[in-house]
Design a protein around this nucleic acid. Structure first.
Lengths: 156, 156
DNA sequence: GTCAATTTGACATATAAGATGTCATATTGA
DNA sequence: TCAATATGACATCTTATATGTCAAATTGAC
């Protein structure tokens, strides 16, 4: 085992606590908006990108379509997203953010930006870039292959 | 909003998917050992550190003692940890890893090390170090203050 | 030493993320 | 055309994590 392996291990050890604390903080401010982190992730994808079908959202987020369906149902009820006809599929509608959804997400983003501005001020831009690249490599390493979901991951 | 703020935002965006994929991978290989990620975290703390009381474990992991208690109960039943008298407290035992617990954790660590060795080989040691420092800063930024758990986090 | 504030164990419940299963229908590709 | 696959629309299950309560133990201020 190299020192780098040890260092990567320790890096990955930090991911769970970090996720938990960020998720708690985010969940708290999302409560006012009446949505959870799942809904937020879907809304972010739809605000920042193209309308997609529910299964396509699931594939984009690496989440099962069944969970995404629930979150989309909630967002539909809240009027934050809407169904549009899908030229490529009769039953499978495209889901798109509404203006209300875009407004809400803009508020969420603004609040989150304020929350991390102080943190960002203490970090070097190049270091953040390096960290992003390292995390992206980790993400890729632990990603199931889209074309073979049953392929075992690195730990199997 | 500076570019760094934007970069930190995108970095934090990666934390949830990364956590999910790593957790899934870890959970899969932990199933054979009959424990979950919660039990693994407790066991890791006790194997690598000193015996602690249940609330002390919770404080170390930033987790409520009630959750830790459940995981410790499971580890006790499995013989992976044991109770020891606590000189500083009559009712609140110290929890310590048993030899079985140490053996199991060594196996878990070995497997995890094998799983990330390939990934580590593609990364520069200094980049990993930078990433660790950046994540540590994020962790600290989102940490509730121990002496005032009700203090709002950065997003509140 | 006394007593109020805090900590702990024990138990109980709530919520949310996420995984998994099924079945009928729609779609696609060989 | 027809078998394989994708989708919608359910439903169930596990686990992590949060939260609440209460009595007993402990601690710290006085």
């Amino acid at each position: 085992m190299t020192d780098t392996t040890e260092a990567v291990y320790e890096l990955l050890q930090m991911v769970r606590p970090l996720h938990r604390r960020v998720a708690r903080s985010v969940a708290e401010h999302l409560k006012e908006a009446g949505i959870g982190v799942g809904e937020r992730a879907v809304l972010a994808l739809l605000v920042e990108g193209e309308p997609r079908s529910v299964p396509a959202i699931g594939r984009a987020l690496f989440l099962p379509r069944q969970n995404v369906q629930k979150w989309v149902d909630g967002l539909l009820r809240a009027g934050l997203v809407e169904r549009r006809p899908n030229p490529a599929h009769r039953r499978s509608h495209l889901i798109a953010a509404t203006d209300e959804g875009r407004d809400l997400f803009a508020q969420i983003r603004a609040r989150e930006t304020r929350a991390i501005a102080e943190l960002a001020g203490r970090l070097s831009p190049s270091d953040v870039k390096v960290a992003s690249d390292v995390l992206a490599a980790c993400l890729e390493h632990f990603s199931p292959f889209e074309d073979d979901p049953d392929r075992p991951g690195p730990l199997a």
